[in-house]
Design a protein around this nucleic acid. Sequence first.
DNA 1: CATCACGTTTCGTTATGCCTAAAATATATA
DNA 2: TATATATTTTAGGCATAACGAAACGTGATG
Lengths: 217, 217
Amino acid sequence: MVTGSREDYLICIHKLTQGGGVAKTNDIAQFMKVSPASVTEMMRRLAEENLVDYEKYRGVRLTRAGQRHAKQIRRKHRLMERFLVNILDTDAETAHEEACKLEHVLSDSAAQKLCRIIGEPEECTGCDDTCDGICVNHSLTQDTVASMNEGDAAVISHLRCENAEKIRKLISMGFVPGRRIVLENDLPFKGPLVLRIGDSRVALDRDYADLIFVDRD
Amino acid sequence: MVTGSREDYLICIHKLTQGGGVAKTNDIAQFMKVSPASVTEMMRRLAEENLVDYEKYRGVRLTRAGQRHAKQIRRKHRLMERFLVNILDTDAETAHEEACKLEHVLSDSAAQKLCRIIGEPEECTGCDDTCDGICVNHSLTQDTVASMNEGDAAVISHLRCENAEKIRKLISMGFVPGRRIVLENDLPFKGPLVLRIGDSRVALDRDYADLIFVDRD
DNA sequence: CATCACGTTTCGTTATGCCTAAAATATATA
DNA sequence: TATATATTTTAGGCATAACGAAACGTGATG
């Protein structure tokens, strides 16, 4: 099992070797706020578990497995951070600190579900190295509510993350992945779309229609 | 600092002494799936920190401080569980297991915010022993949407938790604490109330009107 | 009231993760 | 190249949290 502390080391190494090269003991120690001796010991252990390639006095880099692990946790961190900021309205710094703890505990499946709600942040655009192979959004439907016709039914697949406020509004209105919606549009309104979510109707600004991706029936 | 493991012991003792009396070493060991020897040792430590009253060979019970701690964590557990089930659509068993980890990491302030979104579950009704002194709802406004007149504006304070499904529906409609609402009622409907939330209009069943507590302007 | 069985505690050990101080190695400078 | 400086590792310790085995209380039974 990879404990929280080990995961922190993996993340640290991942960050320090972002641009290529190896991470040095002292740099890791400084980053992690521990003594260099502790780092050496931990590197020995992580190497034993094949999470890092470690050469004495030379430096350390992540193995493929270590990289996979580190990316997954960094993604969970971002997701929790965004959840705390966008949904719970936590200030950025507090959110970061709390995410540092939550990232070690959030399950893969919960992360996936969170991702479908708040979307994958900018860091993910184009599926760069920080989330490759994990981000679900890119393989999903391209249909949005904007493409639905009166009377159409669909299930919400995921949300596009344009900005925090919009995402928050969508969630609070009930646009959560997995929920079934029907486009009614039969109210005497011109502007907003009228959608049925379960038993309730919601009037949705047209600006928001293409932020909601749906799977058609 | 009270680590996750210690917290688990506190919760365990809290559960075992729910109906009064003391918790016995073996019972705790069984519950925690550790050896009795480990329990004894931990009791010694918790007693040193004044979290439990412990008499050798006799049994253990929580002190006031220990109780406060245990309750807070059990509340965080319930909140996370409900978040996972209601918002992320996780199945009950998985949610419980994940909540067991998250409960140790969730901050007080995040818990409070979560509570304001998903409301306090049934276990809290009447502020029984599982949440006394923590639950914010009871000190808040008694005004609900039902008491609003046409044209009135207000800010949503919190939601009454009648049952999970209703809370979920309300959240999904956009009734989230902190959001400003206006009672419009100018649509050609008889039954539901029509409210404006930000840019959108929502038709709300009258049955739900007294579940939404508001702060008047 | 002595004894026995069960529950409980103590003791010695292990693993993790951290520390400081001392030794080893690498790098920079003369 | 030799030496000084900086980096890194090793060695020995400490705290937490777990274990099994052995010693110890407590209460029930004869």
